[in-house]
Design a protein around this nucleic acid. Structure first.
Lengths: 170, 170
DNA sequence: CTAATATGAATGAAGG
DNA sequence: CCTTCATTCATATTAG
C-alpha cells in the first residue's frame, strides 16, 4: 500500500446515530462516504475501472471532495475493498450455485431463497453510465442525490488507463 | 475475509413472535442460530479455536447445518464478532479495573458499579468439552439441547488444523 | 409501546 | 492480493 500520498481529515458525517455537534469534537475515526460519493465510486467501478492508478485515484478523489472530505487513501482503500468483496461475492455465488447443482444427479433440487437483503446501497451493481460502453445516457438515474453528481459523470470524459468495456480481473 | 463458500437460505425462525406471512414482507433479515448451534460454536470457540481457517469453517458449517440452515458466511461472521466482542469486553473490564486501581497508589479503591448485567451467559466462557485439553468427559452438560449435539462433539475427533490446547493467534 | 441491550452483517482501515 | 481488526448499522429480543 504505497499508493497514498495525501490525506486530509475526513470529517464525513453521514448517518450517525448521535451527532457530536461540537466544534471541538473531531471524533470521526473513519471516513463515511456520502451517498453521492458512493454513487460516483460505484459507477466508476462498474465502468470497468476496478483498479485505478495513482493519477486516476487523485482525480477521483478531487471529484469526491466536492461532496465531502475525502483523501486519496480512502479512495484507494475503497477500490481495494470493492475489488476484494466483489470477487468474493462472485465466488460465493458461484459456489452456492454449484453446490445446488452438485450432490449426486442434480435433479430435484429445491430453490433456495437468494437472500433478499434490503440495504441502502449494499450489493446490486449500480451502473450509472460512467463507462464508455454504455452509450445510452441514463440521466434519469439522478434524482435522489444532488444533481451535481451528473455534472461530474457527464463531464468525465473517460479515463486514461482502464476505461475498457470489459472488467479486467486479476 | 474470504472464508465463505456456500450459503443457503437461513430461514432460521427459532423464536419469532409473529410469522412473516406477508407477500410483501419477506424480511429474511438475518440468521438466527439455534441453541444447539450456539452451543457448538461456543464450545469450539472455548476450545481454543477462535479463528478457524476456511477448511475448518466449512466443517463447522456442515456440523451446524444439521441443526438448521446456515452458511459459511454466518459461521465466519460469528467467530469474527465473537472475537471482537470478547476482546472488547475484556478491554473494557480491564480499563475499568485499571481506572479503579489508578488515581494514586491503588490503596483505597472504592467499589465501582460493575454495571447491572443480567444476561444469560455474559462473560462466563462456556466450556463444553470440545477441546482436546479437557480429558474429563463432561457429558453431563448435555441436558437442555437435543442429545444429537453430543454426538457431534464426542465424534468430532479434533480438527486437522487447529485442535490444539493453545489458541493460535496471528 | 418505547428504550435498552444483544448480536448478525457490512465496511473502512491496516497488516502481511 | 488475501486476511484480519475495529467500528458501525440493522434487527431481534427483552426490560421498563
Amino acid at each position: 500500500m504505497n499508493q497514498e500520498g495525501s490525506s486530509q481529515s475526513p470529517t464525513g458525517q453521514c448517518r450517525s446515530p448521535s451527532a457530536p455537534s461540537n466544534s471541538t469534537a473531531p471524533v470521526r475515526s473513519r471516513w463515511s462516504p456520502k451517498p453521492e460519493q458512493i454513487l460516483i465510486l460505484e459507477s466508476i467501478f462498474n465502468s470497468g475501472i476496478v483498479n485505478p492508478p495513482k493519477d486516476e485515484t487523485v482525480r477521483i478523489r478531487k471529484m469526491l471532495e466536492q461532496f465531502g472530505a475525502v483523501g486519496d487513501t480512502n479512495v484507494f482503500y475503497w477500490f481495494q475493498n470493492r475489488r476484494s468483496r466483489s470477487r468474493r461475492r462472485q465466488r460465493q455465488l458461484q459456489a452456492a450455485t454449484a453446490a445446488a447443482v452438485t450432490s449426486r444427479g442434480a435433479e430435484d433440487q429445491q430453490h433456495m431463497t437468494p437472500m433478499s437483503m434490503h440495504h441502502p446501497y449494499s450489493n446490486n451493481e449500480i451502473n450509472l453510465g460512467f463507462g464508455s460502453c454504455s452509450n445510452s445516457s441514463a440521466n434519469y438515474f439522478f434524482n435522489d442525490p444532488s444533481s451535481q453528481v451528473s455534472s461530474f459523470l457527464l463531464g468525465h470524459s473517460s479515463s486514461s488507463s482502464n476505461g475498457g468495456c470489459e472488467s479486467n480481473n486479476g
